[in-house]
Protein backbone atom coordinates (compact mmCIF):
# COMPACT_ATOMS: atom_id res chain seq x y z
CA UNK A 1 0.00 0.00 0.00
CA UNK A 2 2.45 2.57 1.17
CA UNK A 3 4.92 2.19 -1.67
CA UNK A 4 2.08 2.72 -4.12
CA UNK A 5 1.56 6.14 -2.71
CA UNK A 6 5.17 7.05 -3.11
CA UNK A 7 5.30 6.41 -6.80
CA UNK A 8 2.32 8.65 -7.54
CA UNK A 9 1.59 12.35 -7.32
CA UNK A 10 -1.11 13.27 -4.88
CA UNK A 11 -3.53 14.12 -7.67
CA UNK A 12 -2.88 10.78 -9.29
CA UNK A 13 -3.34 9.06 -5.98
CA UNK A 14 -6.70 10.67 -5.38
CA UNK A 15 -7.82 9.89 -8.88
CA UNK A 16 -6.80 6.29 -8.62
CA UNK A 17 -8.36 6.00 -5.21
CA UNK A 18 -11.65 7.25 -6.56
CA UNK A 19 -11.40 4.99 -9.58
CA UNK A 20 -10.76 2.11 -7.29
CA UNK A 21 -13.80 2.81 -5.19
CA UNK A 22 -16.14 3.59 -7.96
CA UNK A 23 -16.35 0.87 -10.51
CA UNK A 24 -19.21 1.06 -12.91
CA UNK A 25 -19.51 -2.29 -14.55
CA UNK A 26 -20.74 -3.10 -17.99
CA UNK A 27 -21.82 -6.67 -17.50
CA UNK A 28 -21.63 -8.25 -20.86
CA UNK A 29 -23.54 -11.48 -20.59
CA UNK A 30 -21.60 -13.39 -23.19
CA UNK A 31 -21.86 -16.78 -21.60
CA UNK A 32 -23.01 -18.78 -18.65
CA UNK A 33 -21.10 -16.57 -16.23
CA UNK A 34 -23.69 -13.90 -16.56
CA UNK A 35 -25.70 -15.77 -13.99
CA UNK A 36 -23.15 -14.93 -11.34
CA UNK A 37 -23.43 -11.18 -11.81
CA UNK A 38 -26.84 -10.73 -10.19
CA UNK A 39 -25.74 -12.81 -7.28
CA UNK A 40 -22.67 -10.66 -6.91
CA UNK A 41 -24.56 -7.43 -7.00
CA UNK A 42 -27.53 -8.29 -4.84
CA UNK A 43 -27.99 -8.61 -1.15
CA UNK A 44 -25.98 -11.68 -0.35
CA UNK A 45 -22.65 -10.60 -1.74
CA UNK A 46 -23.47 -6.92 -2.17
CA UNK A 47 -20.78 -5.66 -4.46
CA UNK A 48 -22.03 -2.12 -4.05
CA UNK A 49 -20.31 -1.86 -0.70
CA UNK A 50 -17.09 -1.87 -2.72
CA UNK A 51 -18.37 0.89 -4.93
CA UNK A 52 -19.30 -1.46 -7.70
CA UNK A 53 -22.49 -0.77 -9.47
CA UNK A 54 -23.98 -1.51 -12.83
CA UNK A 55 -23.86 0.92 -15.68
CA UNK A 56 -26.33 0.83 -18.46
CA UNK A 57 -24.16 2.06 -21.24
CA UNK A 58 -20.53 1.68 -22.16
CA UNK A 59 -20.12 5.46 -22.07
CA UNK A 60 -20.46 5.45 -18.33
CA UNK A 61 -18.84 2.14 -17.61
CA UNK A 62 -15.38 1.54 -16.27
CA UNK A 63 -15.22 -2.21 -16.23
CA UNK A 64 -16.22 -4.56 -18.97
CA UNK A 65 -17.14 -8.00 -17.73
CA UNK A 66 -16.75 -10.80 -20.20
CA UNK A 67 -18.76 -13.50 -18.51
CA UNK A 68 -17.75 -16.67 -20.19
CA UNK A 69 -17.01 -18.04 -23.62
CA UNK A 70 -17.18 -15.68 -26.55
CA UNK A 71 -18.66 -16.68 -29.86
CA UNK A 72 -17.11 -14.84 -32.80
CA UNK A 73 -20.46 -13.27 -33.42
CA UNK A 74 -20.50 -11.87 -29.92
CA UNK A 75 -16.90 -10.84 -30.14
CA UNK A 76 -17.75 -8.18 -32.63
CA UNK A 77 -20.16 -6.61 -30.17
CA UNK A 78 -17.73 -6.93 -27.36
CA UNK A 79 -15.09 -5.10 -29.32
CA UNK A 80 -17.60 -2.42 -30.19
CA UNK A 81 -18.61 -1.97 -26.58
CA UNK A 82 -15.07 -1.98 -25.43
CA UNK A 83 -14.07 0.64 -27.90
CA UNK A 84 -16.94 2.83 -26.83
CA UNK A 85 -15.86 2.83 -23.23
CA UNK A 86 -13.83 5.76 -22.02
CA UNK A 87 -10.35 5.61 -20.62
CA UNK A 88 -9.37 4.46 -18.10
CA UNK A 89 -11.19 1.24 -18.67
CA UNK A 90 -10.73 -2.26 -17.41
CA UNK A 91 -11.68 -5.71 -18.53
CA UNK A 92 -12.44 -8.64 -16.28
CA UNK A 93 -12.79 -11.98 -17.94
CA UNK A 94 -14.73 -14.78 -16.29
CA UNK A 95 -14.02 -18.41 -16.35
CA UNK A 96 -11.73 -20.79 -18.18
CA UNK A 97 -13.29 -20.21 -21.53
CA UNK A 98 -11.88 -16.73 -21.77
CA UNK A 99 -8.45 -17.95 -20.84
CA UNK A 100 -8.02 -20.89 -23.16
CA UNK A 101 -11.38 -21.76 -24.61
CA UNK A 102 -12.24 -24.12 -21.80
CA UNK A 103 -14.64 -26.79 -22.83
CA UNK A 104 -15.14 -24.95 -26.15
CA UNK A 105 -11.48 -25.09 -26.99
CA UNK A 106 -12.16 -26.81 -30.30
CA UNK A 107 -15.38 -25.11 -31.17
CA UNK A 108 -15.50 -23.69 -34.65
CA UNK A 109 -17.11 -20.44 -33.64
CA UNK A 110 -15.72 -19.67 -30.25
CA UNK A 111 -12.55 -17.80 -29.59
CA UNK A 112 -10.11 -19.43 -27.27
CA UNK A 113 -7.87 -16.71 -25.89
CA UNK A 114 -9.58 -13.42 -25.17
CA UNK A 115 -6.28 -11.69 -24.61
CA UNK A 116 -5.63 -11.81 -28.32
CA UNK A 117 -8.59 -9.60 -29.11
CA UNK A 118 -8.92 -7.19 -26.27
CA UNK A 119 -6.56 -6.57 -23.39
CA UNK A 120 -7.70 -8.15 -20.15
CA UNK A 121 -6.82 -6.91 -16.70
CA UNK A 122 -8.04 -9.68 -14.50
CA UNK A 123 -8.96 -13.27 -15.25
CA UNK A 124 -11.20 -14.99 -12.80
CA UNK A 125 -10.65 -18.67 -12.99
CA UNK A 126 -13.30 -21.29 -12.63
CA UNK A 127 -16.11 -22.81 -14.49
CA UNK A 128 -17.96 -20.88 -13.33
CA UNK A 129 -16.35 -18.66 -10.71
CA UNK A 130 -18.56 -18.21 -7.72
CA UNK A 131 -19.47 -14.69 -6.53
CA UNK A 132 -16.76 -14.89 -3.93
CA UNK A 133 -14.28 -15.44 -6.69
CA UNK A 134 -15.77 -12.61 -8.67
CA UNK A 135 -15.44 -10.26 -5.77
CA UNK A 136 -11.92 -11.43 -5.26
CA UNK A 137 -11.28 -10.63 -8.87
CA UNK A 138 -12.70 -7.20 -8.40
CA UNK A 139 -10.52 -6.61 -5.43
CA UNK A 140 -7.53 -7.63 -7.43
CA UNK A 141 -8.55 -5.12 -10.05
CA UNK A 142 -9.00 -2.47 -7.41
CA UNK A 143 -5.51 -3.12 -6.16
CA UNK A 144 -4.19 -2.84 -9.63
CA UNK A 145 -6.03 0.44 -10.15
CA UNK A 146 -4.76 1.80 -6.90
CA UNK A 147 -1.25 0.96 -7.99
CA UNK A 148 -1.91 2.87 -11.16
CA UNK A 149 -1.12 -0.18 -13.27
CA UNK A 150 -4.47 -0.75 -14.78
CA UNK A 151 -4.78 1.19 -17.94
CA UNK A 152 -6.29 -1.04 -20.44
CA UNK A 153 -7.24 1.43 -23.09
CA UNK A 154 -3.72 2.71 -23.60
CA UNK A 155 -2.47 -0.80 -24.05
CA UNK A 156 -5.15 -1.46 -26.61
CA UNK A 157 -4.39 1.69 -28.51
CA UNK A 158 -0.70 1.06 -28.56
CA UNK A 159 -1.10 -2.42 -29.92
CA UNK A 160 -4.08 -1.71 -32.01
CA UNK A 161 -2.68 -3.18 -35.20
CA UNK A 162 -1.94 -6.46 -33.56
CA UNK A 163 -5.38 -6.66 -31.98
CA UNK A 164 -7.03 -5.66 -35.22
CA UNK A 165 -5.20 -8.33 -37.11
CA UNK A 166 -6.35 -10.93 -34.64
CA UNK A 167 -9.88 -9.64 -34.71
CA UNK A 168 -9.92 -9.68 -38.49
CA UNK A 169 -8.72 -13.24 -38.46
CA UNK A 170 -11.75 -14.55 -36.62
CA UNK A 171 -14.37 -12.11 -37.75
CA UNK A 172 -14.65 -12.84 -41.42
CA UNK A 173 -17.27 -10.30 -42.39
CA UNK A 174 -15.66 -7.34 -40.71
CA UNK A 175 -18.13 -4.53 -41.09
CA UNK A 176 -17.06 -2.46 -38.19
CA UNK A 177 -17.74 1.13 -39.14
CA UNK A 178 -14.75 3.34 -39.33
CA UNK A 179 -15.87 5.60 -36.55
CA UNK A 180 -13.39 7.67 -34.69
CA UNK A 181 -13.83 5.75 -31.49
Amino acid sequence: MENKRNSQTIAEYIKNWSRKHSLFIMAYGTGCGAIEIPATLTSRYDAERLGIRGAATPRQADVLLITGYLATKTLKRVIRVYEQMQDPKYVIAFGSCTINGGMYYDSYNTINVLEKYIPVDVYINGCMPRPEAVIAGFQQLQDKIARGEADNGTRYKENLEWYRANQHRVIKNWRMPDYNW
Binding site: Y28, R77, R175, Y179
Partner: peptide
Protein backbone atom coordinates in the same frame (compact mmCIF):
# COMPACT_ATOMS: atom_id res chain seq x y z
CA UNK B 1 -13.36 14.78 -28.75
CA UNK B 2 -16.47 14.90 -30.79
CA UNK B 3 -17.79 11.77 -32.41
CA UNK B 4 -20.26 11.10 -35.12
CA UNK B 5 -23.91 10.78 -34.17
CA UNK B 6 -23.73 7.31 -35.66
CA UNK B 7 -21.37 6.32 -32.89
CA UNK B 8 -23.89 5.36 -30.28
CA UNK B 9 -24.05 2.57 -27.81
CA UNK B 10 -26.81 0.33 -28.95
CA UNK B 11 -26.05 -2.76 -26.93
CA UNK B 12 -22.92 -3.30 -28.91
CA UNK B 13 -24.91 -3.54 -32.08
CA UNK B 14 -23.49 -1.60 -34.96
CA UNK B 15 -25.86 0.64 -36.87
CA UNK B 16 -24.86 0.61 -40.50
CA UNK B 17 -24.20 3.71 -42.48
Amino acid sequence: RGVSTKDISTSGEIPLE
